[in-house]
């Protein structure tokens, strides 16, 4: 499996902060590395092609686009029903993330995590009720978000050249 080399890491560090809104957004990095901008974009294409980058584009803050209620819904699904249930969940348009995670017994029995967005709290509750009914009833809880302290992309610290940059530039 392809692993990023030292130049890839420099590119990852640069692009994870977001591209500047200028005519040639890669020019500063190209100058710094002594490489052409085309070389940099072909490396980004390779990072995408090899699955390191899942998507490369405009990343939106969903809370500002009207989906003001964000409920993390956690489910305790018997292990043998987990995959079928998860695949069923992903068919619903209001489910925006679906992960299996470790249980943490005794205080945390939940093994399937979904993120449900809705225009308001009541919508989220209704979506969850519909989901529960459609997919088989399982013990679950909705954890509504109260306050977002920080939201940015996964931020990698270059292991080859350790230089820590602040993640949130807002």
């Amino acid at each position: 499996m392809y692993q990023p080399d030292a130049i890839d890491w420099q590119i990852i560090e640069y692009i994870q902060e977001g591209l500047p809104l200028v005519h040639r957004p890669y020019a500063p990095l190209a100058t710094q590395l002594g490489l052409s901008e085309t070389h940099l974009t072909s490396r980004i294409a390779n990072l995408h092609h090899t699955g390191i980058i899942k998507r490369f584009g405009i990343v939106i803050h969903h809370r500002r686009l009207g989906y003001q209620a964000n409920g993390m819904v956690v489910w305790d699904v018997p292990d043998e029903q987990l995959i079928d249930t998860a695949q069923h969940f992903t068919q619903f348009v209001h489910v925006t993330l679906c992960y299996q995670r470790s249980r943490h017994l005794p205080q945390w029995p939940y093994n399937l995590f979904t993120m449900i967005h809705g225009l308001n709290r009541q919508h989220v509750i209704a979506h969850v009720a519909a989901l529960n009914e459609a997919c088989g009833s399982f013990p679950h809880e909705i954890l509504f978000s109260q306050q977002c302290f920080k939201q940015c992309g996964a931020h990698y610290v270059n292991p080859i050249k350790t230089e820590v940059k602040p993640c949130d530039r807002q």
Partner: peptide
């Protein structure tokens, strides 16, 4: 409304 123009990394790939 948007946080950035850039990559979303695949979790656990790197």
């Amino acid at each position: 409304i948007i946080s950035r123009i850039g990559p979303v990394f695949k979790p656990h790939r790197i």
